[in-house]
């Protein structure tokens, strides 16, 4: 549960270049290179670490191993798990609803994350100019990141995007007759994407911090050379903030995979209509807790772990090509 609903704000605000740097090409570096060890230090270290070690063993590593075992069984919580080999996985690939949940989640991640980050970067660049009221705007734009994950926000979203409500009426002004997005299987996913984009404030704050670190002289020199705003953006801003961008992409992507509450509430608990908001977690929840297929749900969990691991690995690998670190690295 501790991994549930870490708001993007929570993760993102720690986002900083040092984090990206640390995870950079050199791999994960320890905080301070160890110099001297003695048994007293060891004892103190393990004592201080004991809560974490216990937590890791009993709440993370142990459950992961158990879940791996369960994924090869049929288990309904009432009777003992029964070994069925790869059956859960073959069932999963043959299950159109599982494929639908992969499709919905991928769509949500692939559209939601880039749009959100683009909005965050654009607004961050606007706010990077020192103007009167800057810190007020920054605070106001950040606020949705804190409340966006709540049930309240999802309830309000359901209202705003339903038939005859504001979004529907606005569309009609432009002559688009779609009706409410909530009941429309092809539109409701965009209501969810809008909800995540609304929370652009968290990555924005990180972009802002990154932008502040870009030396002004670089821009001044470029201006002297006659570089226009687009060239300045692509040749100075983007490379200079690429570590921050990398960090944001990484965390937002992983976070987006985990959407549950807003999909559940916006669809009134059905993850519909027509499974249009059947995000991965929704389906895992339904199979595990409603249909009592704990083995199948465990298998789903492991498969997602592999998928997210793969995406993370690709991101780390790709950063060699586009993330520029000021010092060290390459």
């Amino acid at each position: 549960m501790t991994h549930i609903h870490t708001s993007p704000g929570a993760l993102a605000t720690g986002g900083d270049r040092s984090a990206a740097k640390r995870n950079g090409p050199g791999g994960i570096a320890p905080p301070v290179p160890p110099k001297r060890r003695d048994s007293g230090e060891n004892l103190a270290g393990y004592l201080f670490m004991s809560p974490w070690i216990a937590g890791f063993l009993f709440l993370v590593a142990g459950p992961m191993v158990f879940s791996l075992y369960l994924s090869f069984t049929e288990y309904n919580l009432f009777e003992a798990p029964r070994w069925i080999g790869l059956q859960n996985f073959t069932d999963m690939f043959a299950d159109p609803r599982w494929r639908q949940s992969v499709k919905v989640t991928s769509w949500y991640v692939l559209i939601g994350t880039p749009v959100k980050l683009a909005a965050a970067l654009a607004v961050a660049m606007l706010l990077a100019q020192k103007r009167w009221g800057q810190s007020f705007y920054r605070a106001a734009f950040y606020a949705p990141s804190l409340i966006g994950a709540s049930v309240s926000a999802a309830i309000v979203w359901r209202a705003l995007f339903s038939d005859d409500a504001i979004v529907d009426r606005t569309q009609k002004v432009f002559g688009v007759e779609v009706g409410g997005w909530i009941g429309d299987p092809s539109m409701i996913i965009y209501a969810l994407i809008a909800l995540t984009v609304w929370q652009f404030g968290a990555p924005m704050v990180i972009f802002l911090a990154g932008l502040k670190q870009v030396p002004r002289e670089l821009y001044e020199a470029a201006e002297v050379d006659g570089a226009g705003p687009w060239r300045r953006f692509f040749h100075i801003t983007l490379p200079m903030i690429s570590p921050v961008l990398f960090f944001n992409v990484l965390l937002e992507t992983i976070h987006s995979f985990q959407i549950f509450g807003s999909a559940y509430i916006v669809s009134n608990g059905s993850c519909g209509p027509a499974d249009a908001t059947l995000v991965y977690t929704c389906y895992l929840y339904e199979q595990g807790f409603v249909n009592s297929r704990m083995g199948f749900a465990s298998a789903m969990g492991w498969l997602l772990l592999l998928a997210v691991g793969l995406v993370t690995a690709v991101l780390f690998w790709s950063q060699k090509r586009w993330v520029h670190y000021e010092e060290g690295g390459r």
Partner: peptide, 8 residues
Amino acid sequence: PNKVEQIK
């Protein structure tokens, strides 16, 4: 069905 869905 779209409307039925929304008033649920």
